[in-house]
Write a protein that binds this DNA or RNA. Sequence first.
RNA 1: GGACGCAUAGCUCAGUUGGUUAGAGCGUUACAUUGACAUUGUAAAGGUCGGAGGUCCGAAUCCUCCUGCGUCCACCA
Length: 907
Amino acid sequence: MKVKLPGWGFGLQLLLFYRFLSTLGLSMNDSSPEFMKAYEPQGVEDAIYQKWLDSGYFTPENLPDFAERKEVFSIAMPPPNVTGVLHLGHSLENSLMDAMARYQRLLGKKVLLVPGTDHAALPTQARVEKMLMKDGLKNPRQELGREGLVAKIREYAEQSRSTILSQIKKMGTSCDWSRLAYTFDEPRNVAVNELFKRMYNDGLIYRGYRVVNWSVKGQSTFSDDEIMHVERAAKLYTFKYGKDFPIAIATTRPETKLGDTAVAVHPDDERYQKFIGQTFTVDVGAAEPLKIKIIADQNVDPKFGTGALGVTPAHSAIDFAMYELQKMQGNPIEIIPVIGKDGKMTAAAGQEYVGLNVEEAREKFVAWLRAQDLLISEEDITQNVATNDRYGDVIEAIPMEQWWLDVNKTIPQMGKSLRDLLREAVTSGLNGEAAQKVDISPERSIKIYLDRVESLRDWCISRQIWWGHRIPVWYKDGEMVVSEVPMGEGWVQDEDTLDTWFSSATWTFSTLGWPKQTADLATYHPTSWMQMGSDNIYLWMMRMILMSAYALQQIPFKEVYFHGILRDDQGRKFSKSLGNSVDPLEVIAQYGCDALRVSLLVGNTPGNDSRFSEERVGSARNLVNKIWNISRYISMNVGELRHVELVFPKTLTDKWILGCLAQTVEKVSKLFDQSDFSLATEILREFTWTDFADWYLEIAKVEKGKDDILNYILERLLILWHPFMPFVTEEIYARFNNGMLLVAKWPDIEDLKEVTSSVDHLTFTNLQATISAIRNIRAEYQVTPKQLVDVVLSDKEILAYSDIIIALAKVRYLTVGVKPEQAASAVVGFAEVHVSLEGLVDTEKERTKIEAELVSTKKYIEVQTMKLDNADFVSRAPEKVILGEKAKLAEAIDKVTKLEQQLSSMK
RNA sequence: GGACGCAUAGCUCAGUUGGUUAGAGCGUUACAUUGACAUUGUAAAGGUCGGAGGUCCGAAUCCUCCUGCGUCCACCA
């Protein structure tokens, strides 16, 4: 199956351009294109992505040997909001997901990465309304009407959506475009309606009158998770309702006191105990005189303020809870809403106040208190107020009828509540099944999650905005039908829409066909892995677990990896207001996608923030280019790159490098399994640059006959790097004429282990140290690299590798013997290296150097001796440690002897 | 108020269950570069692992307290 998407003509054009070049002889045939001096990502990335699309391999069913791929690996891509364009955070997420997906594909699994976008109900509507208002509309909802405004939003969303999808491709993400989903398309709407119906029938979804978080500007409710608190200066007023009222109370919201119906005190508070149960009638200027009942409540802090709390059930969630408690206890108090949905005082607030906004009402009420001599004190304080970042206004607590999801009610068929399910999913596993347990990384996030589970309140799921899944409920003459459009005339659908998280919470299974029992659902759910920002623990992860556990009795994903947020080079968050935003597409244009991906993954550990800077991208680009040039060099030397199935190491160095490769494969595999992308990158970099390029390739210039091994290692190196830098590795791999790297096989550790079972690491380490010692002396005496030096070794074992030493350390004659007169020396393990420096040796300098080394070595011997003489150490430390310490001591003692000899020979 | 995290080289960070004379990248310095790679090479300098106690034969690593920074939650009416 071939997947082609509209708007992807650019890659094709590039391909044609390259064909055109090749006819001019500027580039070679497709089978083995020549290596340019430096890798230029701009010319090849789009064509490679198109090649992958054409192969169809992003769709797991099209993978080679599909039937033999036993294991399944699936990821549901967190759908980006259609509110704009992708930013660096998305690039990070794509890099994480795609690295994981590609690794698993190379391992030979059926890999599915489902792409999609989120209609992001409230943020999208808020953004479009803002834009329309900028264009001159005063009240878009009024002026355009429901259909008109939704059409405008849809238009914007579609455009934004296609931009985002093309950006995901630019990141190289290997997702299955044939399964592309959208939280607001028809299949997802079916899932949402079905879920609503089931939850309603189970009594979990209900309609209820209570205090909600209300945005006056947005004219909609918000859930507890969508509001944030900001600090602001406020005044704390202490006052009495009337001259004869026995208790003073404090407030920062005097205007709401027009709706007070009780005063709460601590039940044990001796000052107020005698008033508990009494009702006082006071006239503060509201429509009706207030009947204030004195009630007892455990939660009142007797030490704070006056120790008494004015209760406003209509405009405070806490006070509303007291109101409900009183009602339950058969001791009800009244509820009087004095602020309306428009943010203005209601008629209940009284003639004087109706129509005023809260600030005006506050001023007026305070003035009245002052005039009546009821105001006892006012104090400047800082206060946290609830706001929302979408409309930017203060959230008012207002009571109204809304749809709620009950987290405490026992679900009929399950015998437990949604809260229970949320808890089980990360502890025992659903129903105690270990296979239905979500593993969370970093571990500490589990605790944060569980804390929240315990304090979870019912979730307000209805919104008054228009962009979103409409509540699937119809009314007619007091009748109500849920989920299906009823037959007959005159039915009116509920005006409200669902909280956007209601639909995105179904993402892992609605994208696989639920509520139909599809093969996809059976094969790919629960999904294997999920990554998200740690700010999404409550907002999204919790809701996904909730919905999946309820609808399927399955967890949505087996593992979840929380990444931190990206900060700039100064540690600041990226934001529009700071002007430090970075456009990933510009970075890609300049440095290439591979460099961007690597720079985002290096230093990114679970739960921790990481920094992004152009410098980092630069150094990642250098790494990409290094791999390019390693390949270029090998290809120039071995003639043609080709696949080599097995190798037979001939020399020490062959065994050593294959041993390094084996270790690297083992470590990187393990790190992938632990989602430790950062360390995996570092391990690979070390192997690539230091072991392979700086040592082995340099040695290969001297020791010939390594063509097979070079091919063997390079091919595996490309496979290992592919998850991190898919483009450049695929581009180089084309020269192997061995199919597509995308579906290559991850190196087999067992094969490698067999080949390298007899590696003599010690000898190679000595060889390296010998060469480094000579280079060190050369640098110290500023011998130019061109100039050859004569070297005398004390140990003849290493002489077997004289060719390598001569080449890598720029040596003229290499012999075994005693120290020449004019020479600088170094101790390497149990051997000595002397570099003849006719007329160059600075005896004083040498002496000082040796003496300094003697001092430190002797000190070390002292410490080691003490350690080994310590009976406790010898008796309690493991044998392995003791042997190690003894060996180190022996080496140090030998070193002292040699240094002393060198010193005495200098006289 | 509650919870959590971080503190290691000039900068950004590794350091896996306690056993190194504590590492990397970038930056710095010196020398070099017709050579696969100036997107390079070789080498060097640079740290009493935030502070104080404790456990242990042994602590960057475990425990307690303190200091500084950060994050989340709750919200004081």
